[in-house]
Design a binder for these strands. Structure first.
Length: 743
DNA sequence: CTACGCTGTCATTGG
DNA sequence: AGCCAATGACAGCGT
């Protein structure tokens, strides 16, 4: 049931996003009552009250591409990212998507997924998203989030108490699901995870001692604590401004897939004055994209039977019928199909081009189709002479008639262009490996993905680090001893959880109990409605991390809730929760009657720490314990930071790899387009050549023989009629030049 | 029961 | 020399 609802809510939220993108305002508040400002902020944007924490959470939003390293909800992350990319793809045309996705808006009650989705994309994606109704995903996600969100849930409850009747348990569950989907837990969860181990026997004894010494703690009034916590609960939580961010990023201009139109003009010779409209290139591009899309889709659907089929008129398909057996091969064949055709054109049109790869045979040999050399030997001698120049061949140069056409372009292609082409061939060769093919597919799948990645700036990535480290530094810089306790809060708040009032209030209320955040939040949680704890089973796992039960009597006196709002039976439960929130060191500190908080012990600068120690008459055992607490506490934070950094590094590397893959795929695409346009231009030039040559007449009015004369293009755009022998000579000369230069 | 991930802790190293 | 951050290694716990 819970999973079903979660599932439903995911679809609801996604649909809401989609609607908002197309201009439909979805007033969710009317649905969930106006008592849930956080929800409204999720949908409509941040309120000023939560701006700061939202800023910190931005890095964890979908558009931020980032996921908090410490609390990754990979399912949500990948799902959200995929959905976002799909949404982005809506505003661009002719970009094929490799996934056929149905935006899940509803589902049938049986729990079967209405939105079908071919098994495609990353496994991580497919395992998440809309289909995680069954299986382990739910469990994982729940365990991932239950800790972090339980407090949010409670906060929601605090804002809109169940008294209203609108917030049933299911509503709360639903809210929780919404949160789970789009909120990164951030460091707040870390704070939640402060473990409170207490398995050692001596500690147990200390606990009992501490229970006896309960009332000796200075400034540790339970009522004050509870009061402050209540206030904290009213402040609510901060909510990430992920939706505004997403929308903003969604409106980003999508980079054009096509290269500047001037490119083809550069490639055109003076003879060709824009006869080829940009539309032609675009049309070709669309054709190419459609072909690739077909392949990509076939890859996704894993249909290996008929992997490639194209209209018979398509030169690519006709020249290169493909029947690979695996998707990977299919993609490889794709390159071969489109690029190989170009190579063939090279061999037919210009011996220079053909000779160039041969010169670099070590690397380029695989690129040259086996038949190309034959073609070269067969037709090469006729290329310049134009043996087949009869005008009736005009217009048939394309496609099938290709091999019979001579190459009139000998003088047209300069060396620079040839080099370019050879470089392209090099790139093509690279693109022939299956990995590249899959990358190409990925490229089409995720499109350019620029907006996604651009939003994932390194600064945003390191923000969590900065916040956490700044907290420690702030604790160092804050000279007042009273601010030390709030330093741990600042860390929490920086990542987007806590509120200042909580910080301030708790700081005074806390005694020798460290790790205030979780302490306070659990207090507040149980304070609101302890019955909810039992209603939401996963809440029972909150704070499970390495926590140990402490003698309930230890905090009984400290946890008295205001009368009337709490059942008597829940008191022990509260105490349990609170006790579990105490770490071993906290228990030890209590047992040893350390007169200040563990937070102070840990976070105070050295000078202040020593000063604090000097204020009290502490035994050697106490001093030793305090030093240990300080060392362990610092080390714990250090370890957390270290792990966070490690994750950040991994994520950064992952992102870099993705970027590089995208770039590579993009370059491949551009190369294909270049080659295609180049082939077209060659054909045009050839037809013009034939037309011009066919109209030439000698002094006797007879046409020139293509076997004896040839047209040569000069650099200034003029065309000369020269004897064929001379043309061949020059052609050979130009043929050698690139070779020599490369050596 | 085992594998795996998470977390805290200890030991060590380098600044 | 002392302090501290960073990090590898290890153990305990929960799933």
């Amino acid at each position: 049931m819970l999973s079903l609802k979660k599932y439903l809510t995911e679809g609801l939220l996604q649909f809401t996003i989609l609607l908002s993108l197309i201009g439909v305002r979805v007033d969710v508040d009317t649905y969930l009552t106006s008592q849930l400002p956080p929800l409204r902020e999720i949908i409509l944007g941040p309120s000023s009250a939560y701006t700061q924490t939202q800023f910190h959470n931005l890095r964890n939003t979908l558009d931020g591409y980032g996921i908090h390293p410490k609390s990754i909800d990979l399912d949500n992350y990948f799902t959200a990212r995929r959905l976002l990319s799909q949404v982005r793809a809506l505003d661009r045309f002719q970009v094929p998507t490799t996934e056929v996705n149905a935006w899940l808006v509803h589902r049938d009650p049986e729990g079967s997924v209405s939105g079908s989705q071919p098994s495609s994309g990353l496994a991580l994606e497919s395992s998440s998203g809309l289909q995680d109704v069954t299986g382990t995903d739910n469990g994982v996600r729940e365990s991932e989030t239950e800790q972090g969100f339980s407090e949010d849930l409670e906060d929601l409850g605090a804002v809109a108490p169940p008294v209203s009747g609108d917030l049933t348990k299911e509503d709360i569950d639903l809210i929780d699901i919404l949160w789970r989907q789009d909120i990164d837990l951030g460091a707040g969860r870390e704070i939640f995870d402060y473990s409170h181990r207490q398995k050692e026997q001596d500690v147990d004894k200390e606990l009992q001692d501490g229970a006896e010494q309960e009332d000796t703690w200075p400034g540790e009034g339970a009522e004050a604590l509870a009061r402050n916590l209540l206030v904290d609960g009213e402040t609510g939580e901060s909510f990430p401004a992920q939706f505004p961010a997403d929308i903003a990023s969604l409106t980003e201009a999508v980079p054009s897939e096509r290269e500047p139109p001037g490119l083809q003009n550069n490639l055109l010779s003076p003879l060709l004055t824009g006869t080829e409209s940009p539309f032609d290139l675009e049309q070709q591009w669309q054709d190419l994209m459609s072909i690739m899309e077909m392949q990509a889709m076939e890859v996704n659907t894993s249909t290996s039977e008929i992997l490639y089929s194209a209209p018979p008129g398509d030169p690519l398909s006709t020249n290169y019928s493909l029947a690979p057996n695996t998707p990977i091969n299919q993609n490889v064949s794709l390159h071969q199909a489109s690029l190989g055709g170009c190579s063939q054109d090279f061999s037919l049109f210009s011996p220079e081009v053909e000779s160039l790869p041969v010169a670099d045979s070590s690397t380029l040999l695989p690129l040259v189709p086996s038949n190309s050399t034959n073609l070269n030997s067969t037709f090469g001698s006729t290329n310049l002479a134009g043996l087949f120049f009869p005008p009736q061949l005009n217009g048939t140069a394309n496609d099938t008639a290709g091999p019979e056409l001579p190459d009139p372009l000998g003088g047209l292609l300069d060396e620079a262009m040839l080099d370019e082409i050879s470089l392209m061939d090099l790139a093509i060769e690279e693109g022939f490996n299956p990995v590249q093919a899959s990358q190409l597919e990925e490229e089409f799948d995720s499109d350019s993905g620029l907006s996604l990645d651009s939003s994932h700036s390194p600064s945003s990535l390191s923000s969590s680090e900065g916040s956490s480290s700044s907290s420690s530094s702030s604790s160092s810089s804050s000279s007042s001893a009273s601010s030390s306790a709030s330093s741990s809060f600042s860390e929490e708040g920086a990542v987007g959880y806590s509120s200042d009032s909580e910080t301030l209030d708790l700081e005074e209320a806390e005694g020798a109990v460290g790790y205030q955040p979780e302490y306070s939040k659990f207090c507040r949680m149980s304070y609101q409605d302890p019955s909810q704890l039992s209603c939401l089973p996963y809440l029972e796992h909150v704070g499970h991390n390495h926590t140990y039960n402490m003698a309930p009597s230890a905090l009984d006196s400290a946890d008295l809730p205001p009368p009337g709002t709490l059942k008597k039976g829940s008191k022990e439960k509260q105490a349990d929760f609170l006790d579990k929130q105490m770490s071993r060191d906290e228990h030890r500190a209590r047992a040893m009657k350390i007169p200040f908080t563990n937070d102070k012990i840990i976070n105070l600068p050295v000078e202040e720490f020593n000063e604090l120690l000097s204020k009290y008459q502490l035994s050697e055992a106490q001093l030793s314990l305090i030093r240990d607490i300080r060392r362990r506490g610092k080390n714990k934070m250090a370890a957390q930071n270290c792990r966070k950094r490690k994750l950040d590094t991994i994520l950064n590397l992952e992102r870099d790899v993705e970027d590089l893959q995208r770039d590579k795929a993009r370059l491949l695409r551009e190369k294909v387009e270049f080659l295609r346009s180049l082939r077209q231009m060659k054909q045009k030039v050839q037809s013009l050549y034939q037309e011009v040559f066919g109209r030439l007449r000698d002094e006797n009015g007879r046409p020139y023989s293509p076997s004896q004369y040839a047209l040569q293009y000069t650099g200034d755009g003029s065309v000369l009629l020269i004897p064929r022998a001379l043309a061949d000579q020059q052609a050979r000369r130009q043929e050698r030049k690139p070779k020599d230069r490369r050596k």
